[in-house]
């Protein structure tokens, strides 16, 4: 059984069809990349997967369960978390507070209004783990708004990771990260635990081909080609439509 599956998923905005008849299958433990030219409907698709947008038609299955009508914060509890193409962070909080918040929400302590934050060792231990894993230790007390962009990008992924998802959706994680900070980001993505299934949406072909074990190509809102990286790279139609322009550049 695939861990994440869409069945004839469709999204229309008035007369414009953003996604049409998308049957995406993500296997458990996969490093799955979703690529496609600008405007192919990648972000619309991820917004439907996470519940930000409601599909016009079709179903979304997570571990065999229909989650089409489940609200976003419930999907997080069911094991799916995402990052955003444009950072969506809590600028007034420090990385430590942000991560602590996610941990306490996941442990169901978020509605606890009496205990002071930080008094549970299970929470603080995990905060330290995440902060170390995402190389945020030296900036953990800084306000998020003041962090360098590369660190903010790491925090963006750290927040999603801390939800302990079984499926992690990364929406263009490397977008806009300066060359000097890129290596740190890529190494962190590489080091994500194998049991977490990753669906990566990315423009950067180097990253896609070094990371993914399966690639789906989205063109004009529909799935165009789907297969192992070598197949996709060889596919003449993909070259014509999309890869050609990118790879030759």
């Amino acid at each position: 059984m695939p861990i994440l599956e869409t069945i004839r998923l469709e999204k229309r905005f008035g007369g414009i069809t953003a996604n049409h008849d998308v049957n995406l299958v993500v296997e458990k433990g996969a490093r799955h990349a979703l690529i496609g030219p600008n405007g192919a409907g990648k972000t619309t698709l991820i917004n439907m997967l996470t519940g930000v947008l409601k599909p016009t038609a079709g179903r979304i299955m997570l571990e065999g369960r229909d989650i089409t009508d489940v609200v976003p914060h419930e999907r997080v509890r069911l094991g799916m978390a995402r990052t955003f193409q444009i950072n969506q962070l809590f600028l007034d909080l420090t990385p430590l507070e942000s991560i602590g918040l996610v941990v306490s929400e996941r442990l169901g302590l978020g509605a606890d209004w009496w205990r002071v934050v930080g008094t549970r060792s299970s929470v603080t231990d995990e905060i330290v783990e995440v902060v170390e894993r995402f190389r945020l230790t030296d900036v953990m007390h800084e306000r998020t708004a003041r962090l360098p962009y590369g660190k903010q990008r790491l925090l963006e992924i750290a927040l999603a990771f801390t939800c302990r998802p079984r499926v992690l959706l990364l929406d263009e994680p490397a977008a806009g990260v300066p060359e000097a900070e890129r290596h740190e980001l890529l190494a962190t993505i590489e080091a994500l635990p194998a049991e977490v299934t990753v669906l990566l949406i990315e423009h950067d072909m180097d990253l896609v081909f070094s990371f993914a074990d399966r690639i789906s190509v989205l063109v004009n809102g529909s799935l165009f080609v789907d297969g192992a990286p070598e197949e996709v790279a060889r596919d003449p139609r993909v070259k014509a439509v999309y890869l050609g322009e990118e790879l030759d550049a």
Binding site: H73, R77, Q88, F90, L93, S104, C163
Partner: peptide, 18 residues
């Protein structure tokens, strides 16, 4: 703390399960 997160960024707050 979760309220401050909601105030700062409701979209992300929902995306981390709040």
């Amino acid at each position: 703390l979760s309220l401050r997160a909601v105030k700062g960024n409701p979209l992300r707050a929902a995306a981390i399960g709040i």
